[in-house]
Design a binder for these strands. Structure first.
Length: 491
RNA sequence: GCGGAAGUAGCUCACCUGGUAGAGCGACAGCUUCCCAAGCUGUAGGUAGCGGGUUCGAGUCCCGUCUUCCGCUCCA
């Protein structure tokens, strides 16, 4: 048995479509760019990944609770978080060098060269003009300004510019049925991250669930971003799902908690049996405006190492910002005794360690690591091939397939009996058509870990054949042990 | 967003230099079959991404558009 390592990303994408895992959104209308739908097996796999994460966060950690915050949030949320100001800059491209500039950076850079030449007053005038135009979103005026002063690209040296375009990270929509005179009054954003729903509920959760620091709040849910380049299948989508946990800690302890979660999260990945050498950390050198420390957990996809999860030490940035914008105190009273002073730690705004994993990326990770094209040497010397998804049993869409060897002699009746016993406990699939080998292969293609075949011997002694997906080996066990076998593998 | 390539049945592809679409696999319905796909029979499924143009006639040539792929660019 040999595995072909040269399976490309394309083959995995084709397989995902052909077997009902992922479809392009609105495909009959030529599709919607960078939006995808999950099919029957895809949505099961996705749900199983989400459940596994949720359980490992909220059930296995007594100090982590969940919430489900709305996608719509008060617009001020995004002013406080920095998303409005940091991600709505007008951009311009140089057609010759293909280099993209933020318009304000381009003009400021030009002003710097003026200042270097001692033309400071001209520079100041230019900055003033720019700020006026920016405030009015007058892109034509800004472009004129760039041409008027013959601002050129530092790479190509030309003034061959595209029109100015605004890059908006966040999707906007209208809120409320009645239009206001000022359209801005009705704008709400589709959240670009789930984290802010946790932060604005920090005190609600802390008080009602009677949480003591250190504690965490977990949430899974959709988030929306206008990506400049949206490509690579479900790796980068405009609508995607995050699984985030914000862990609130006493200031000064964030360094050790960052280490704890960095390790804890990688262990979660390893617990799925995915080879450790496929993973690596990528520590951030350049940090975001809110971060103290940050790293990514990267996975080696067929297209190279890519980020799947981020662990960020976010300081008290977010809660402080929300306190500032909402004018509501975000303090926590810590009654524990500080050994240094002999007194309680008292009031403070907690620090936050964030773990944030993309559910869709995790889905792709599972699919990529599971997909195998195998060539099998048969006993008669000929070769055979199969496509198999070695999905971890606890994540597999179907857990058990039940086959009567033939569809007569009472075998289907026995199989249906087993089916009705098992299906309340885990997802099963029943099939009686086609040759048994063909049925096995169909289950391999969607990653079903176990197949059970009922044959004539079952009638005599009540045993069945269990066929294992990964090894293709078979064993004979009593039919009433099947349930237990599967349950042991998936819990 | 820019440059290049592609878009024919669910999938992989064929139709050579324009003359009104075919195969394999798959699916479905049967038959056969006592344990690993490629035995047998039958059925369904495509106005050739979409729109326009040239032509007596276009899947085949031209333009536009959408989508996908590759490279560049961006990515808190």
């Amino acid at each position: 048995m040999s595995t072909n390592n040269e399976t490309t990303f394309q083959q995995i994408i084709a397989h995902a479509k052909e077997y009902g895992f992922v479809f392009q959104s609105s495909e009959i209308y030529d599709g919607l760019s960078a939006v995808y739908d999950y099919g029957p097996f895809g949505c099961e796999l996705k749900k199983n990944i989400r459940d596994y994460w949720w359980k490992s966060m909220t059930q296995l950690h007594e100090n982590i609770v969940g919430i489900d915050a709305a996608i719509f949030m008060h617009p001020t949320t995004w002013k406080a978080s920095g998303h409005v100001d940091n991600f709505s800059d007008p951009m311009i491209d140089n057609k010759d060098s293909k280099k993209r500039y933020r318009v304000d950076h381009l003009i400021e850079g030009f002003v710097d060269t003026l200042n270097a030449k001692g033309e400071n007053q001209k520079g100041e005038e230019l900055i003033a003009a720019m700020e006026q135009l920016l405030a009015k979103d007058d892109f034509a005026g800004l472009k004129e300004l760039i041409y008027e002063h013959k601002m050129s690209c530092s790479v190509s040296g030309t003034c061959n510019w595209t029109d100015i375009r605004q890059f908006n990270l966040m999707f906007k929509t209208e809120f409320g049925a009645v239009a206001s005179d000022n359209p801005d009054d009705n704008i709400v954003y589709l959240r670009p991250e789930t984290a802010q729903g946790i932060f604005v509920n920090f005190l609600n959760v802390q008080k009602t669930a009677r949480m003591k620091i250190p504690f965490g709040i977990a949430q899974t849910g959709k988030a929306f971003r206008n990506e400049i380049v949206a490509r690579q299948f479900i790796f980068r989508m405009r609508e995607f799902e995050q699984m985030e946990m914000q862990f609130f800690v006493r200031p000064g302890t964030e360094g050790e908690w960052y280490k704890v979660w960095k390790e804890e999260r990688l262990n979660w990945h390893k617990s799925l049996g995915i080879p450790a050498e496929k993973y690596r950390y990528h520590d951030h050198v350049k940090l975001a405006h809110y971060a103290k420390e940050a790293c990514d957990i990267e996975f080696e996809f067929p297209i190279g190492f890519k980020e799947v999860e981020g662990i960020h030490s976010r300081s008290d940035f977010d809660l402080t910002q929300h306190q500032l914008y909402s004018k509501k105190k975000q303090n926590y009273y810590d009654a524990d005794i500080d050994p240094a002073t002999g007194k309680p730690y008292g009031n403070y705004i907690p620090y936050v360690i964030e773990t944030s994993i993309g559910l869709d990326r995790m889905f792709l990770l599972v699919l990529c690591s599971a997909y195998k094209e195998e060539t099998i040497a048969k006993e008669d010397g000929s070769t055979d091939s199969r496509v198999v998804l070695n999905i971890p049993a606890k994540l597999a869409p179907n857990k058990l397939a039940i086959f009567p060897l033939t569809k007569k002699d009472g075998l289907p009746e026995i199989a249906e009996k087993l089916m009705s016993e098992c299906k309340p406990l885990f997802r099963c699939f029943y099939e009686e058509k086609d040759a048994i080998g063909k049925r096995y292969r169909r289950q391999d293609a969607i990653g079903t870990p176990f197949c059970v075949t009922i044959d004539h011997q079952t009638i005599e002694d009540g045993t069945v054949t269990v066929r294992h997906r990964d090894t293709m080996t078979q064993e004979r066990i009593p039919m009433d042990k099947v349930k237990e076998l599967v349950l042991n593998a998936i819990v």
